[in-house]
Design a protein around this nucleic acid. Structure first.
Lengths: 159, 159
DNA sequence: AAGCGTTCCGAATTATCTTCGTTCGATTCC
DNA sequence: GGAATCGAACGAAGATAATTCGGAACGCTT
């Protein structure tokens, strides 16, 4: 499968920052005709390089007063145990991200809750209470920053 | 400032999943006329409830072969030290997210790299080498899942 | 019940997206 | 070498969607 050329990278960089930029404007910025630009974007979508679009919302406006990272260690690392915990974790609405890690901690859960009391309830009922969980360590998120575009490394588009 | 009503929540839930849904379709799904729906979306944008839109790309297609969470402990917790480290971390292109935490670890960095060698180079040169850094613990990300919509708690829209 | 503000609607306008036929340059195949 | 083929790009026309606008319905206050 073809690799991403410079124009593709440019398109991806712009679209990552703003998914709703008009195709017309995007075409101008990358120096292509509208139709050609549209074709490239469509191809990127069809090939799965672009997997979706998201609207970013303000956590505070949603009533999310507290965010935390919850590090979880499991008692056993059998496939069934791991998968069972993961399923339980991600189906909690408060859990917005679930990272399965190698190393000391097995899972890192990014949770979004109303307030400290809500956090406590969530952790006690959803994590600590589970049999397969050995240890839970919660850290409040004071501040978070996200880049608006992921890096692109040359020779990309493996699949 | 007004609170989010049920329709707003509905709109936000749909837009979080798909930022490029046509306004026409969105209006149908929430049971509003196009013009009214458009007005509500515009208001949400103006009020900062919607802070932007992002295109999600496939990490593998970008040449990102390895992702990791890097937990960093600083030697000092003075404001200047913390801010200095944070600035240095986020300006690295490989760092796509930087969480400032309370608790044992000070920072959690989500890094995206080509391969294990790249990871090693990044950690040694960007983190371990820094004076303000006391300890670094790296965990590979085996798997990650993100919810496609954050929870919305009643009585929202504080500001 | 009248006044006021808010929310909503639908049609007309404007802008954008998408398709299509064509051109151009590079590569391959006689 | 020269014709045929392929891929990528373009621009105009047609389809689709976004945006604006005047006015109607609703709920509250007075």
């Amino acid at each position: 499968m073809a690799t991403l050329d410079q124009t593709d990278c440019e398109i991806l960089r712009i679209l990552q920052k703003n998914a709703r930029i008009p195709n017309k404007t995007l075409a101008e910025q990358v120096g292509l005709a509208e139709s050609t630009c549209l074709m490239r974007v469509r191809r990127l979508r069809e090939e799965g390089v672009i997997s979706g679009t998201r609207t970013v919302v303000d956590a505070e406006a949603l009533g999310i007063g507290v965010q935390a990272m919850v590090a979880v260690q499991l008692r056993s690392h059998s496939r069934t145990t791991v998968e069972q915990f993961q399923r339980a974790a991600v189906q909690r609405p408060e859990v917005v991200a679930c990272y399965h890690l190698g190393g000391r901690t097995d899972f890192l859960l990014h949770v979004t809750v109303r307030d400290p009391a809500h956090l406590r309830d969530l952790i006690l009922s959803a994590f600590t209470a589970r049999d397969e969980v050995q240890q839970v360590e919660t850290s409040l998120i004071y501040d978070q920053q996200h880049t608006d575009a992921w890096p692109i490394y040359p020779e990309a588009r493996a699949k």
